[in-house]
Design a protein around this nucleic acid. Structure first.
Lengths: 189, 189
DNA sequence: CGGCTTCTTGAAAAGTATCAAATATAGTGG
DNA sequence: CCACTATATTTGATACTTTTCAAGAAGCCG
């Protein structure tokens, strides 16, 4: 008996753990629907440097440009543990309705990403934490479930030092759980 | 005889001059294709404040979310003189290919908008000026063709003062034409 | 253990925001 | 036609936030 959480005419879900590379710009592959987790997108600038270019959350479509261009335009990295399924599943061409939804979602998360660079450091980090936690989870957030400081710094256009200081003060205020993130190389989960 | 610069089965182009409101969030209307000019998108936050949420340039689709939701999600304002045509033109439903292109364009301009908030003030303003001028026009840019300082400040997450100072120094360097923008209420063109 | 990576923290420096005022122009109404 | 108002840009002095640079602490891994 096959598992029942995805249709039998689709490929199985793909897992990506925190920090893992999902695909690389100019590489080939399918588009993806994010079932859970959050993803960071990066664009390679003129000088070959990769810069933050967007964020994708649960329910978003990832790498839709490959359906048009034949290759990915951005590099995708998992900000948290992710589950992805190829998109569109069975049909070779997505239908107009789902494409429209993907388009509307893309514009919403664009506005979200821009908003993550508004205001002072405290406001940005707070907004990012809220976005990653999802509006459905108002309970206190553990520091363990957050991305690396490097990722959060890139997303908010702050430095690692500033993000660290901000998180520490958020912990002091009780917004975050009073438990420091373990230092050192992240453990392989 | 009808004009020949657009197909007779389409509505005529719409003009919007610099600073003009194109449509309002929660209002109704069609989606638009930008034939020329640049547009600023704003989202109303929780407290009712409007914040910058994106930029749209020549060739981009504007307000596609109205095809899915029935109303606009953002407020659109002309950053420069614009010409728009309803989209899709004759067909009631856009085809998959053009939707995919709109989706890819949306992600590209999302990355562009995020990049406008990277680096110091000089880098941001320089990038914005380059984006609005288009890569096809490497010649020197007149100060008259730029949006208002208020708009540029909102887009780059700087203040009006800082944008002004940056533009003045760019004029001194010769990147911009050495002609100051006229002060006072913008003339209605 | 030693090397590597990540997070934390301190002090000084740099950049931008803030506040305020001056300048300049378009539109309005007398 | 001319004050008068409203809006937009420029500029200066100061205060504040964040960056920078540096070092230390803490965990993983070979």
């Amino acid at each position: 008996m096959r598992p029942t959480f995805f249709h039998s005419d689709q490929s199985p879900p793909r897992q990506a753990s925190t920090g893992e590379l999902i695909y690389t710009a100019s590489g080939t592959g399918s588009a993806w629907l994010i079932l859970s987790g959050s993803v960071r997108l990066d664009r390679t600038e003129d000088r070959g440097e990769a810069t933050f270019a967007g964020i994708a959350l649960k329910g978003d479509i990832l790498g839709a440009e490959t359906l048009l261009l034949g290759s990915y335009s951005y590099t995708a990295t998992a900000l948290s543990d992710c589950v992805l399924v190829p998109w569109p599943g069975a049909e070779t061409q997505p239908e107009a309705g789902t494409l429209l939804k993907a388009l509307a979602d893309a514009e919403r998360r664009c506005a979200d990403a821009i908003a993550l660079r508004c205001g002072d450091a405290a406001a940005r980090v707070r907004r990012l934490v809220g976005l990653l936690a999802g509006r459905t989870a108002p309970q206190r957030i553990s520091r363990f479930t957050l991305p690396s400081l490097r990722d959060m710094a890139d997303i908010t256009a702050l430095t690692v030092s500033t993000v660290s200081r901000t998180l520490v003060s958020m912990q002091a205020e009780g917004v975050l759980e009073m438990q420091s993130k373990p230092r050192g190389r992240p453990r392989i989960t």
